[in-house]
Design a protein around this nucleic acid. Structure first.
Lengths: 158, 158
DNA sequence: GACGGGGTACTCGGATAGAGCTTGTCCGAGTTAGCGTGG
DNA sequence: CCACGCTAACTCGGACAAGCTCTATCCGAGTACCCCGTC
């Protein structure tokens, strides 16, 4: 089980954007330049965030991406789901249907005890992510490295 | 992000083995026959469980797999880790090192706020899995479908 | 000097190849059970 | 009748291909800015 690397990039990009306080959109190429990331691929991730309603995009010169809402209103789960998709990691294939006593009319995704336990664990994971926002992460960084926000603002300035 | 399908098979196989109360080892082919799974590939997953110390294997005629310890002592996390490996889903690649103010001597897997938040969420997931055992799942199934254990015993009998 | 139009450069957006991992399969090493033979 | 050795079948174990997702890249559509010409 492996999470897409784009999640990490999307997280940091959102945190960096949160430090700009809506000061104009930032092109994907400049966000990518911060960490020497491949710009076209980061662009792809940012597009996913736009589709999910986390970012808004502006075309043309002076265009780019900005947060669609306040960083306090963007949870880490929003970012993960935007990049990874809404499906769960554990996907019950209902093999019990083929077993002894299996019933084709039963939805084992709901009734199989294994599936239920795995689902509960993933729910705990999602709740932890949902309870933490981009703003929280940004504040943590600043409290540990106060100069970070200013450095990012300077690097992202035109 | 997607969990390997073998996890589901391994879970059900462990639960089924827990209902045998150590009555002789069961070959992989018979466990696979329960749900029409590809026997060689299930064998591969069971081997991983042996390496992790969850199962023990016996070669030769009358051989097969059995639980290495009581089902109350086997957590769902043990099974997941055995099949999926011990690595976390989110892997911090320390992109902050390449950013403004990045320090090559800092281990950002420990200090990066994004990494910490993701790690905390995974910890919640692991704790949920660690707090649930194969025996728990088996009891849940039996309480819902009392005939299940007997049906499996009959299907696995030589 | 002010206004309008066209060109240009810049940006996002989606469609297109390549690498790595998961899935699926196969055959060989080891072991036990059964059978035959000899005492 | 009992014990020993051999054969044979069965099982695990690791090595070997195919499919799919993730990674990386490219080029086209759209848009705002800027310059130039005209009024």
């Amino acid at each position: 089980m492996r999470m897409a690397e784009g999640v990490e990039w999307a997280m940091h990009s959102c945190v960096n954007l949160s430090w700009l306080d809506g000061h104009g959109p930032v092109p994907a190429a400049r966000l990518a330049g911060l960490y020497d990331l491949p710009a076209p691929y980061l662009n792809k991730q940012l597009q996913a965030l736009v589709r999910a309603g986390v970012l808004t995009s502006v075309s043309g010169p002076r265009g780019g991406f900005r947060l669609a809402r306040a960083p306090e209103e963007i949870s880490l789960l929003d970012v993960v789901v935007a990049v990874e998709g809404p499906e769960e990691a554990f996907r019950c294939t209902q093999i019990l249907r083929n077993g002894p006593g299996g019933d084709a009319s039963v939805d084992y995704r709901q009734h199989c005890a294994v599936s239920q336990s795995m689902r509960r664990a993933e729910l705990a994971w999602r709740q932890e992510l949902a309870g933490r926002t981009i703003a929280d992460v940004g504040h943590d960084v600043v409290s540990h490295t106060p100069a970070a926000a200013e450095r990012v603002r300077a690097a992202l300035a035109p």
